[in-house]
Structures are given as structure tokens and as C-alpha cells.
Simulated assay, not measured.
Amino acid sequence: MNTTPLIDGAVPLSDWGVIRAHGADAASFLHSQLTNDFALMGLSQARLAGYCSAKGRLLASFVAWKVAHDELLLACHASVLAATLKRLSMFVLRAKCKLSDASSELRLFGVAGPSARALAGDAAVWQKLDANGANVVRLPDAAGHARALWAAADATPALPALGLDAWHWLEVQSGVPVIEAATSEQFVPQMLNFELVGGVNFQKGCYPGQEIVARSHYRGTIKRRMFLFDVDAPATAGQEVFHSADPGQPAGMVANAAPRPDGVGSSALVEIKLAALDGGSIHLGTADGAPLTRRELPYAVTDGAG
């Protein structure tokens, strides 16, 4: 039985920002740089996408959507926005695309529970709607709660107030990772199940790191994956975790974490060696730190680790 308390309402996403891509080549430029398809993206669609280094490591992750045929918005964690904008801008070259920080021009809200369901209606996940001057992106459900991203220039959703910790907990429960500064360049997309949640298109053309990402996919060489854990201690992105059988070196890293609604410890998305799941115990921060208890993700994980 699901004992999760009802989470309902909207919260300003103070830890997120927005990059605007504008111009005739905006979609094609992003298509050449990010892990997902933007060439065939429609005005009623959104995308989860990653931006990789040449070594295939995620520098940032985005929820992206089209405002117009020549304008796209990319919402990302604020801690990686400036560096990502600077790096992307270096590769625009002759493309008719202008990139800018639109964070001060747009209000981003996370909406959850009955409020999200009422706002998004029967929209499919990663569908974009226009509602009273706002863009609404339907996000994957989490812990039985509907979720949506709400963005507008001069409006605020008339919905109950939601706590930011509750929203962060739902982000973790969704199993969709968010790259923060503490985890930038740490993970190949598959280590965070990015392709399992729709963040990678293996049929599209080249982008930075594409050969490494594709090789990991087609050769089945991934030995690390992301799983959901609870721990009776505060957890933060970038913290290492250790396995009892090999306490001298980390077995993985926390990708995202949030306080649990019951006030006891944290829930965390943890990237970890698959071999560490075979037995023994996993601990937060140090070899004798708080033990982690594995929970179920809302999707199956491949490579024999489901």
C-alpha cells in the first residue's frame, strides 16, 4: 500500500534556470550538440536531453521545449547554467542561433499532485501545452504523483503552495536525474539510466561524446547504473558511497538527494557499480557511514541489475 502523503501544489524552482536558443538554426544547432533529437521536435513536444563532454560525460541535463519554430527553451540546474551557456556558445560559429540566459525573464514552477493533473489534463509525458500564457511540460510521475514544469514570463500559477523539499523528493522518486555542479562530468549518460528515461536518441547524428555513448550502448559495456536508495542521514549530490567488501575505494556517487517527507533521512539516486549490488552493504560518505536501503525505481533497469 502506498503510504506516501499527498503532495499537491506549485513551488518556484529557485535552483533552476533557463537558456534560450533563438534563430533560424536554433533547433539544428541543439540537435548537433545534445543527446536527443531536436530536428524533428514539434511545438507540442518537450525533450529530456544531456550535454556531454568529448569524453561522453554529462556536463548538464535539460528539460527542453519549443516556444516557436525559431525559439527553444532549455531548463537546467542553475549551478551548471553559466558554464554550459559559455561552452555551448563557443560552438555556435556560423549557425543562425543566439544563446542567452533567460532565467530573469521567466518564472519556473514545479507542479505536483492533483494540481499537475488538472493543469496537464491527459497530456502524455514529455508533451508541452500552452495554458493561459504559460508553457506546461508534462513530466514523468513520481511516487504516484503527477508532475509538470510550468514556465511563464509574467504570471504565477494560482495553485496551493508546495515546499521545495517535497518537489526535490519527487524529482528523486521519478528516477530522472538532474545534473548539478557537484556531479558535472562524472557520468556517462547510461550510468544515470538516461537512455531508459528518454534522454538519449541513438538514431540521431553526431554530438560531443556520441561515439563513447553509442559504444557503451551497443557493446553492453556499462558496469555502473543508477538506483534509488533511502538512508537515515542527510545526503547530497556528489557524495561518495562505499561497499562493505571494498571499503578502501568508493563504489559510487549520489546523483541527487532530498529529505524524505516523513522527516527521517533522505532518498537518493545513487550511481553505483553493479557488482556492489550482489551482497554486503552500501554506506554513505565513508565505509562506516549510514547504510543505504535500496528501493524500487519506477522503471526497470537493464544489464541484469533490475
Rank of each mutant, 00 (worst) to 15 (best):
F242V: 00
K98A: 06
H217V: 06
L6P: 01
S115F: 01
R225V: 06
L274P: 00
N193V: 05
V125L: 00
L162S: 02
V254R: 09
S32M: 13
L149Q: 01
L81W: 07
L164A: 14
G248T: 01
A102I: 02
D288W: 02
G175E: 04
S100A: 14
A257I: 15
L93K: 07
Q127H: 12
P160F: 11
A46T: 10
A153S: 12
G265Q: 11
G265I: 06
S104K: 15
G263I: 11
L73R: 05
G220D: 00
T221S: 09
A21N: 06
V136E: 04
I19E: 02
Q127A: 13
G17N: 14
R94G: 04
A120C: 13
D154S: 08
G9Q: 01
L74W: 08
A237N: 02
N2L: 08
K204A: 00
H243C: 03
A158F: 10
R260Y: 09
F38T: 02
D122V: 09
L74N: 10
W150H: 04
V11S: 03
L74H: 09
D288I: 06
E105M: 14
D15P: 12
S89N: 13
Q173D: 13
V111C: 02
A49I: 01
S174H: 07
E171G: 12
G248N: 07
C52K: 01
R138G: 09
A75K: 09
E185I: 03
G198R: 00
G110R: 02
S89M: 10
K273P: 01
P114W: 08
A257Q: 13
T302S: 10
G306K: 05
A257F: 10
M253K: 06
S32I: 09
L196P: 03
D130M: 14
G280E: 13
I179V: 15
P247M: 12
G280H: 07
V231I: 08
Y51D: 03
A290W: 05
L192Q: 12
M90N: 02
T3W: 13
D37R: 13
L292N: 02
V125S: 00
P114Y: 05
T156A: 12
V137I: 10
G238A: 10
G113L: 06
F91E: 03
L139D: 01
R107F: 08
